[in-house]
Structures are given as C-alpha cells and as structure tokens.
Design a binder for these strands. Sequence first.
DNA 1: AATAGTGTTACTTATTCAGTAACATATGCT
DNA 2: AGCATATGTTACTGAATAAGTAACACTATT
Lengths: 142, 142
Amino acid sequence: MTNSTRFAVAIHILATIAECRPAPVTSDRIAASVNTNPAVVRRILSQLGSAGLTTAQMGKGGGAQLARRPKKITLLDIYLAVEEPGLISLHRSLPDQNCPIGRNIQAAINTSTKEAEKAFLTTLGATTLKKLLKELHANQSP
Amino acid sequence: MTNSTRFAVAIHILATIAECRPAPVTSDRIAASVNTNPAVVRRILSQLGSAGLTTAQMGKGGGAQLARRPKKITLLDIYLAVEEPGLISLHRSLPDQNCPIGRNIQAAINTSTKEAEKAFLTTLGATTLKKLLKELHANQSP
DNA sequence: AATAGTGTTACTTATTCAGTAACATATGCT
DNA sequence: AGCATATGTTACTGAATAAGTAACACTATT
C-alpha cells in the first residue's frame, strides 16, 4: 500500500489537459493549478505517458495531450499508471519464521485481502475520466 | 490513505491470541512472533481493545484475550480499529482556488472514488478472522 | 513484598514521498 | 544559425509519518 498523492495529482493533471483540448498544455500551467512544482507534474506525466494515457510534444509550443478520449480512460488506468500495487502493507520486518503463525501469516493475509483489493480496483475500472469531468462541472462552485 | 503496517500486525496479533485460546497471551510473546517491540504490540492492542475486539488482564498471569469468537470478528472490524479512514490521499498542498478545476477537483475525486473505497470495505467485512485462521492452517508450510 | 504484567508517554530512527534545482535534449520561430 | 521554450531525467533536500525504543506509573497474583 502506498501513501502517495500521485493518484489525485494524476487525475488533476488529466482533467486539466482534458479541459484544454485540443491544445497541448505545459507542465508549468498544470503545476499552477495543482499548486506544485512543474517537475513533479512532468514526473507524473512521464508515468502517464508510459501507460499510454498521454502524449507529449517537446519544444516550443509543446505540452501534454490526451492519448485517447476521456470516455476511454478509467480511474483504474490512472491508478495503475502512478501507484505501486498493493493496498495493504505487510510487516516491516519479517515475522519469526520459527513460529508456525509467523511463518504463514503473511500468505494468509494476502489471500484473505485479495478479494477486497480486487473489488476496489474493479470499481475504479468502472468509472471513466469523462464521468469525473462531468462530476467536476456538476457541483462546481461559481 | 495510510501506509501503515498496523492492519497486518493487528491481524497477526489477533491470530496469535486466537491460537492460544483460552489462555491470555502477553505482549512479549506476541512481539516475538511478530518480530517487533512489545510496546508496539501493546499500542495496537490498545486500539483493538478500544474497538471491543480484545480484553486485557493486567498483572501477573495477565495478557490479552479475544472479546468474542473469531467467527464474530471481521477483517473490517480490525481494519477500522487500527487504520485511518481514506484509501486515497489528496493533494499535499491545496490546489489553486482561483482555477475552476483546482477549486473543484478534490470534491470530484472524493465523489468518484467513494464507491471503490466502499467496495473495498464491504468485501473486508465479508471475511472473518475464523476464515483467515482456516487459511493459516490450510496452506501451512511444515 | 516481589514478580510479572499492561498502559502510556516521550523520544529516536527509518522510510517514503514531494519539492527543488540543474541540465541535456528537442522543437519551432525569426 | 541561433534563440526561446518546451520536455525528460537525475540527484539532492526537506517534510511527514510510522515504527522502534526506553522508561515508568499502575495493577494483579503469589
């Protein structure tokens, strides 16, 4: 499990790019909206690019664009692009391997929580960026 | 979202207590199996006690016991006892409130991911400690 | 009284992630 | 060609959080 804010920032980045379509958006402009450093945005954009969600144009007049329509991008796509897998962190140090419980507990935890993780991911996969953009406009404060 | 190992350790603690029933188990013995400091175990036991999952006997011959049968303890009970709520971390600094996206993105993220979080918790609630103990014995390495 | 436990606090250490600066590289414009 | 403006990436710093640790007041049993 990870404690990063990358998923939230990645969504913010993609929402910004989507709203500016079809013009490419620079990391500087995105960073201003996110309220962070442009390099942080570029780092995440790099991950989104590797995952095939965005494209980038270098040089003057360049910036980031969506690689496909918001309808075709799910929150699961975004999540997997920027977060480490595994919602649940196991022990920091290995349990006592001489103890029957210590030797087997981690496997049992993995097995027993697998379904819950799967449910989380599956549900994320059922929501698209398009839907989120709609949400963004729906309850918009003036 | 949290990155702690407390959920895994809490499960380990409860599994150990369950296996030793009906005798109370000391934090020292549990700590040996978990491979950590007894105070860490007591800290988590304190949370499990507040949640009504365990009881404790102070003094000589004391230790921790389950407050109810493993069949009546779900992984959700354990999770809620020791973890902060919220699977998804939002931005570290508040987005630009002068930007329409920045102003509304966090609410949109919360709304859009609520279902996935719910699915995770609901599924955790469907698995009991008893089931996990069974798993622990099933695939037990010798 | 002595012993063996919990409960809790305060502090230290480890880890992880975001913030930052710097720079090589790519592109478009004049 | 040369300049301006982008990305991509690296290496480092700083902040936040959680686990590890020591200490000790308190409680129960013998």
